[in-house]
Design a protein around this nucleic acid. Structure first.
Length: 667
DNA sequence: GAGCACTGC
């Protein structure tokens, strides 16, 4: 056979698939770098095997002698569990033996554990007890490019620890774009120590691993879409009509949009000619129950093309097999925090290039795929490289408290990967001061501030809990703290059954507000409902959330007992007990939430104390459309149209002056 | 009279 005939038969592929190189090929170089450099930055995509293989290479190479442990942090609990399970299997041991994991409520480790997977928040907690993290020989921070607050703070701590523990080895796993940021964070800017430019960085090095993805065609719109929701739906139709088999994943921003799109597609798909392949549209967002979420993982019935309309949950947290086409709206809902008002907002924002790449990558996991971006290539070029790190757009109070508890007094000087705006710091310090966690010199108070830092709830609730004994309602406040930390997932909402949910709620409602109502729900669950799923089902309660509340409550109780605070359990429902008990609970809540006070106006809306912000009771509140005067609330959030307050309780104005005279002395 | 993306101790 001559060469020319070969050329005639084969056409070179437009895109070459990335080589399927196993990470094993890099074993020696990784070990060399970890041996030589204090900090190693590993660049590799999902699927490169870095999280599972690198810890095993290190264990094998003797990094666990003398009882030392290799710690691998993950941003999410599920990831810590699943990676630990896979590594344990490859290692040939049970989870919890040589390979284990540690997350809130679950410690699957033992004295024989050598490779330990844990959430980054958990490792920061460990530093409270063991400030130099002396048990660990190597710490690998996985998915550091996501720039969560905890992984950012962890990196700052590790940089500090490294100076006192030169033997500690740090591995940071990152996407390509951010690798250089991490390197210069640990080594200083390139050439800083060498004016002659021949300086070889002796602190941090970067290694790249090939990922295992297939090529993906990226397609842009030639002119901007007026309505990306409409465009998303019509793009799905086009894919269905023109493209070969393969499931579709559509990225939208929220529940509303997703339900609309699912509706539109299912109406349209009934008009498909009989006999042709049909479409199965499915929603996916965090608010769905576990059962409803499971549908997206099931294979579509024969002659159906699965189309999943999803929030950002599928960008990193959830992986669905069989996706060949991705439709990217180009938007995501992001949380922001306004330090001037202390109000969080949640608004649809253009995605970053990093996010867009991650979304597109979801198409190429099993075979070559296509990504339809519902924006122009020009618009893509103007997107920011990465999202603004969480630390620059969040309420920092809980983290300042943790840093202080770790002995870092001068938080303004803390070495942040990216510094938070000064206003955010000031706001957090002011709040902590007003709660009594910090003294006039911004030092952590003892025991109050120290205990607030140790409790796994946000500062205002921590203050409430630590005040509860003196109000004689600790048992009740423990329950309320657990229930509010569920973040509104107590009730199950089925589509088109809003009325049913409302009447289910009414059964437990307490006139004074949401906190006492939540207390009522919990007490009914553990007594009448015997903590069973059936009770939840009958009352439209979220069983998973209620069980979670039981665990959180138990954990908080253990903390308090460790502080020497006695918890006297009482299971009387607030309505059945004296009115005095309910009042004590409301007073106690005021002692922690005085900064979240508002007063109802004649028009039914609320104003904050300074009168500057119009607040609306969230429709999920018992006080929605009811009359009230002064209230305190757990949470405030701004959406596109309105600013809502959630978990609201009626109080007396005098209590504010009684429990926060400093805070309210001018008003 | 109307709605919150995601994660964590």
């Amino acid at each position: 056979m001559d060469e020319s005939s070969l050329e005639a038969a084969f056409i070179p592929a437009l895109h070459k698939p990335t080589a399927l190189l196993p990470i094993a090929k890099h074993r020696t170089s990784i070990l060399y770098l970890v041996e030589t450099f204090p900090v190693t930055i590993v660049v590799g995509q999902t699927g490169s095997g870095k999280s599972t293989q690198i810890p095993q290479f290190l264990e094998n190479a003797g990094w666990c002698t003398d009882g030392k442990v290799i710690g691998v942090t993950q941003p999410r609990r599920v990831a810590a569990i699943t990676v630990a399970m896979r590594v344990a299997e490859e290692f040939g041991c049970e989870v919890g033996k040589e390979v284990g994991y540690s997350i809130r409520f679950e410690d699957a480790t033992s004295s024989s554990t050598r490779i330990k997977f844990l959430t980054d928040g958990m490792l920061i907690r460990e530093a409270l007890v063991d400030p130099l993290l002396s048990r660990y020989s190597v710490i690998m921070v996985d998915e550091a490019h996501e720039r969560s607050i905890s992984s950012d703070i962890l990196l700052g701590l590790l940089k500090k620890i490294r100076k006192k523990r030169p033997d500690l080895r740090i591995i940071i796993s990152s996407a390509t774009l951010q690798a250089e940021d991490f390197r210069s964070f640990f080594s200083g800017p390139k050439g800083e120590a060498a004016p002659d430019d021949t300086h070889i960085d002796d602190i941090a090095s970067i290694i790249s691993l090939e990922g295992r993805t297939y090529p993906i065609d990226i397609l842009y719109l030639d002119s901007p879409a007026e309505d990306y929701l409409e465009k998303a739906v019509s793009t799905v139709f086009k894919i269905h009509e023109n493209e070969p088999n393969g499931d579709v994943l559509v990225f939208l921003t929220g529940r509303d949009e997703i339900e609309q799109a699912v509706q539109a597609v299912s109406e349209w798909s009934t008009k498909l000619p009989p006999g042709s392949q049909s479409i199965l549209p499915l929603p996916l967002y965090a608010g769905l129950s576990a059962d409803q979420q499971m549908y997206v993982f099931e294979e579509a019935p024969e002659n159906f093309r699965k189309v999943i309309f999803s929030t950002n949950i599928s960008e990193a947290s959830v992986t669905i097999d069989g996706i060949v086409y991705v439709v990217d709206s180009g938007f995501v809902k992001l949380r922001a925090y306004n330090p001037k008002t202390g109000i969080e907002s949640l608004t649809a924002t253009p995605v970053s290039k990093a996010s867009a790449a991650q979304r597109a990558g979801r198409a190429g996991r099993t075979r070559p795929g296509k990504c339809f971006r519902l924006y122009t290539e020009e618009a893509y070029q103007s997107l920011p490289d990465a999202n603004v790190p969480e630390i620059q757009r969040s309420n920092l109070a809980p983290f300042i408290l943790q840093l202080k508890a770790l002995g870092i007094d001068n938080v303004l000087r803390f070495d942040f990967l990216t510094s938070p705006p000064a206003e955010l710091m000031t706001r957090a310090l002011e709040l902590l001061y007003s709660l009594g966690a910090l003294d006039d010199y911004a030092k952590l108070t003892k025991p109050l501030g120290m205990r607030m830092a140790e409790l796994a709830v946000e500062p205002m609730m921590a203050k409430t809990l630590l005040s509860a004994s003196s109000f004689g309602c600790l048992s009740e406040i423990l329950t309320i703290a657990a229930m509010t930390s569920l973040g509104g997932s107590v009730w199950i909402q089925h589509e088109g059954e809003k009325k049913k949910t409302e009447s289910a709620k009414r059964k437990f409602s307490v006139e004074e507000g949401d906190h006492l109502t939540l207390l009522n729900v919990y007490q009914a669950f553990v007594t009448k409902g015997r903590r069973e799923a059936r009770f939840c089902h009958e009352n439209l309660l979220n069983f998973r959330a209620m069980s979670q509340a039981v665990s959180i409550r138990a954990q908080l109780k253990r903390y308090l007992e460790r502080f020497g605070i006695k918890v006297e359990e009482s299971l009387a429902s607030p309505s059945a007990s004296t009115a005095n008990k309910a009042e004590q609970i409301r007073r106690c809540l005021t002692a922690g939430y005085f900064a979240h006070a508002a007063r109802m106006q004649p028009d039914g809306t609320f104003r904050n104390v300074s009168g500057t912000t119009v607040l609306h009771a969230h429709p999920s509140s018992i006080l929605f459309n009811r009359k009230a005067d002064w209230v305190i609330f757990h949470e405030v959030m701004e959406t596109a149209n309105k600013t809502f307050i959630r978990d609201i309780t009626k109080i007396n104005k005098e209590w504010l002056l009684e429990y926060a005279p400093e805070f309210y002395k001018t008003s």
